[in-house]
Nucleic acid binder design. Structure first.
Lengths: 137, 137
DNA sequence: TATTGTTATACTCTATAACTATA
DNA sequence: TATAGTTATAGAGTATAACAATA
């Protein structure tokens, strides 16, 4: 069977992303978090007081789809909502949320390390710069 | 707003993949095909007589999820089913399917070119080898 | 008038289990 | 008994439109 797609950058990108995403999801399972949840917790910690809208913009998640995620964080006691004005609120990690976030960051470190160690050394340093050129433009 | 994730390979991979995937989907819109459809047509052409199961294995798509895709190709007149034995059949492109496949390959060429031209030259040659190391292991 | 959070909804993609007919 | 194709279905993830409250 000839796989004529393997050397196409777009195809390789999709397959590599899906594979690494699945691996990261498995790594997060003990925390009952999905990759998107993990990203959100880390960003809330680094940007205390950020609004759901702004957070959604950073992660390319629509306002409407943020609601159930933020609600779940609230129910789990991971975040606090602090009213900014009458219609919007800022998000901050609770103590429990901060503890979970520490575990998330550990999982991320493990994940990123596993990714890098798979890449032949001579290509390693080029991956992130190449990828950043693709989505930040 | 501090985006502490941008330099993580896993995150950069996901964002780059999603962005390029969306761009490719837009490029395929005139053909009324999704990226997965495009991959399938090209693989059928390169592997005439391949079964849906084998095709699904190459693309990491489950047997059950192949059914509606293959059915649609059939309805569009893009493929022919040739019985291999009583329970399985091989897929081949029809003349119309071959014509559509040519357009698909053109779209792929455009897409891959757009990807590559965005990447700074010194990183360019490293992308595909790095990505292949991630999902073929 | 524009924006924030929200609700409801629909559509795609993917995953699972079970069935049938054939090998 | 194992396999190929199929059916039905459920769960994510994502997209859209509309609404209330507020700026």
């Amino acid at each position: 069977m000839r796989d004529v797609l393997v050397d196409l950058p777009g195809y390789a990108l999709r397959r590599a992303s899906a594979s690494m995403q699945a691996e990261f999801a498995a790594l997060l399972m003990p925390l009952a978090l999905r990759p998107t949840d993990a990203s959100m917790l880390v960003l809330i910690e680094a940007n205390a007081g950020i609004t759901p809208s702004a957070l959604g913009q950073m992660l390319a998640i629509q306002r409407a789809n943020m609601v159930p995620i933020v609600s779940r964080f609230d129910e789990c006691g991971y975040i606090k909502r602090i009213a900014l004005d009458g219609r919007s609120f800022g998000l901050t990690l609770s103590d429990e949320g901060t503890r979970v976030c520490a575990k998330v960051k550990l999982a991320m470190k493990t994940h990123e390390h596993r990714i890098m160690e798979r890449i032949p050394e001579k290509h390693r340093a080029h991956l992130v710069p190449a990828l950043k050129a693709l989505w930040s433009s």
